[in-house]
């Protein structure tokens, strides 16, 4: 069990880490030339005039990948404690973990069978 001091280090790190990239950007802001005009500020879309706004219709496939990822991510909440404690556990725990993973694999197999994982 670490002390809160280790986390104090991480906290200070979180506060400081922004400074490193921010400094050169601010420095550049001070030094660089600033002569924007309407032409320069156009969005770069291969020289084609921008038509409409940025709300292009996205395919639902992105959502499906995000969804499968979310489910597997949540699985980690249980698998990491299981893995850490594994040395102290018995065959029963192995069975429990096996069943847990097996049940989730069902979902993956289903998605595979329904061709939900294809990039169409």
């Amino acid at each position: 069990m670490e002390t809160l001091n280790e986390w104090a280090f991480v906290g200070v790190f979180f506060a400081i880490a922004w400074v490193f990239p921010a400094l050169p950007i601010i420095g550049a802001w001070l030094v660089r030339p600033k002569k924007p005009n309407a032409l320069k500020k156009q969005t770069y879309e291969s020289g084609v005039e921008t038509v409409g706004d940025t709300w292009v219709q996205f395919r639902v496939q992105y959502y499906i990948y995000g969804l499968v990822f979310l489910i597997f991510d949540v699985e980690m909440i249980f698998l990491f404690p299981w893995a850490v404690a594994y040395e102290r556990l018995d065959w029963f725990a192995y069975g429990a973990g096996f069943l847990f993973i097996f049940l989730l694999t069902d979902a993956l197999i289903y998605a595979w069978r329904k061709r939900a994982l294809e990039w169409v």
Binding site: P21, A28, V31, R32, T43
Partner: peptide, 26 residues
């Protein structure tokens, strides 16, 4: 890079536009 002109495109969300590279590095 320090002396290059830095262009923020029209319609960009200025705060987030500047925030993204900082987050990336941090």
């Amino acid at each position: 890079m320090l002396t290059k002109e830095d262009i923020t495109p029209t319609g960009a969300d200025r705060v987030l536009f500047n925030l993204a590279p900082i987050i990336t590095f941090a």
